[in-house]
Design a protein around this nucleic acid. Structure first.
Lengths: 148, 148
DNA sequence: GTTATTGCAAACAATTTGCATATAA
DNA sequence: TTATATGCAAATTGTTTGCAATAAC
């Protein structure tokens, strides 16, 4: 039985490795640790969370500077998405190489969850044409009240 | 002849005044200057831009701290939207009291433009129900390539 | 051997906060 | 008169950068 999430993450890891290597970048301990941590991640992570997680890992670690530099590199290559819910911290997540993507719900208590909706997705088809611009992507942020 | 934009801004100004006053807040020079500047604004503004604009205005001014505090207050009351395109600066804009709203396109050169699209908007109807959450709002951020 | 990558610590930029003063109600 | 708002400057926070040391290729 295939576990979708796991495969997606393995795919991302392989894809990321290939892209970075293909660009002539070296496979180094720090960046690899960041990439592997992201691959393990389902949700949005902050740079600080990666630093902390790696500090607690005896097999890998990376300084704050390295984490930020790795994230910047990954972002340049379109391998991670940067997401900013407006709390002053940037959050990152792997970009699924298969093209699948999801969006986010920010709850009033600050929690962030992922969601996807085919119907909403299809509303973006043809939008670029209607607006007369060359769309390269889209993000949706829903705000929701936490049910009490 | 009615000029839509102007009316909308006047409406927002009056609405904002009423809400703040209704909450027992005082009508003070600093906050009023910020509110009036926002009302005059069509596009997304940063806190710093407001400070600078007011510094050049002989009739009004507000310190950095006051501008941030005013924006925070307005945001709490849902009178402004905070928008973060991921460049590390928060941008604010009035929330139209009539319920009308628009979204944003971030171009690869960093420019941000507003847009609205009825078709896209209608895709959000029923979304909360489909997802089983109580939606209070939504933001859409399009990414686009600047035509060369 | 070269050149990219790292860690550290210092530098930065946006935003927040403490506190004494000013002012709207 | 009294509590809210302000300005200033210092403090915080998230992120970036210079540079010498290190490690990939």
């Amino acid at each position: 039985m295939r576990v979708a999430g796991d495969d997606c993450h393995r795919d991302w890891l392989e894809h990321t490795d290939a892209v970075l290597r293909g660009a002539g970048l070296r496979t180094t301990a720090g960046r690899s640790a960041v990439v592997e941590h992201l691959a393990r991640q389902r949700c949005l992570v902050t740079a600080q969370e990666i630093v902390d997680a790696l500090r607690g890992d005896e097999h890998a670690s990376a300084s704050t500077a390295t984490v930020y530099r790795a994230l910047e590199t990954l972002h340049e290559f379109g391998l991670v998405r940067r997401f900013d819910a407006g709390e002053g911290v940037a959050r990152y997540e792997p970009v699924d190489p298969s093209g699948d993507h999801h969006h986010h719900i920010v709850f009033d208590d600050g929690a962030v969850e992922a969601f996807s909706d085919r119907e909403l997705e299809s509303a973006f088809e043809g939008l670029g044409e209607r607006l007369g611009v060359d769309l390269t992507g889209h993000d949706v942020i829903l705000r929701a009240r936490r049910p009490e």
